[in-house]
Amino acid sequence: TYPVHQACDILFCKGNIVPVGKDQLPHIELTRTIARRFNERYAKKNPVFPEPDAILSDAPEIPGLDGQKMSKSRGNSIMLSATAAETAKLIKKSRTDSERKITFDPINRPEVSALLTTAALTTGRDPKEIAEEIGDSGAGALKMYVVESVNNFLAPMRERRAELAKDMDYVRDVLAEGNKKANTIANETLEQVRDAMGMRY
């Protein structure tokens, strides 16, 4: 049922552009199908739902530290809430392989390539360029580079998060206000759905 729940999250606010990862593209297509079929069946003259388009970033697929898809349940992800020390520990524990020379080869060296991809995403550099730079220095040097890159990239976010955590009443107020706005939009959309379906009794 997850893809249908996701469709509801998009359609209740009439989202027309949805930023997603590559693995979510089939879910966006299902959302488009639901919107299209509803409009064709109940609202041909005045469509209720737009058919949303997916928008992919420059990194549509982020590998986890083990080279597989990044996932909280797999324990291969770097959490934004982690401290610099926790992040360093996680990266240092990540698997590599027995080859000393660092190369970017996602198919034959997924773990090493995942670390290079992480470094590239957090520095704006090319993973092959980073691999060439590290070269024969080995996995230890690669991990140190990734630790520094990730922690530098996340530092301003962690700082802002810490500031917000000092005022949880403000955070709760923002969440409540967001929920209130979303509920207003959802109720308006449901009214339009009821009108289109002739469900006024």
Rank of each mutant, 00 (worst) to 15 (best):
A186G: 01
S113E: 06
A119W: 02
T87S: 10
E86K: 10
A7E: 00
K181C: 03
M70H: 06
Y2V: 10
Y201T: 13
L116S: 00
E163G: 06
E188T: 12
K166Q: 15
G135Y: 01
L190P: 00
L175D: 11
P52L: 02
M157A: 14
E86C: 08
D23G: 06
T117L: 03
A165T: 03
I91D: 03
R32P: 02
F12K: 04
Q24T: 06
D23V: 08
N46E: 14
A196T: 10
S149N: 08
I78D: 02
S113V: 02
V174P: 00
P110K: 03
F12V: 01
T184C: 03
P110L: 08
F153Q: 06
I91T: 05
K180N: 09
L116R: 00
E40T: 09
A43E: 01
G138F: 03
V147H: 00
A43F: 00
E191T: 11
A114P: 04
M197Y: 11
R95K: 11
A119G: 11
E129H: 04
S94Q: 03
R100V: 14
A88D: 13
H5I: 15
L25T: 12
N183E: 15
V150L: 05
V171K: 07
D105Y: 02
S137A: 15
D58T: 12
R172A: 14
E133Q: 13
P110Y: 08
D53E: 14
K143Q: 12
L154W: 02
Y42K: 01
T123R: 05
L175H: 11
D66L: 06
N46F: 03
A176N: 11
G75L: 07
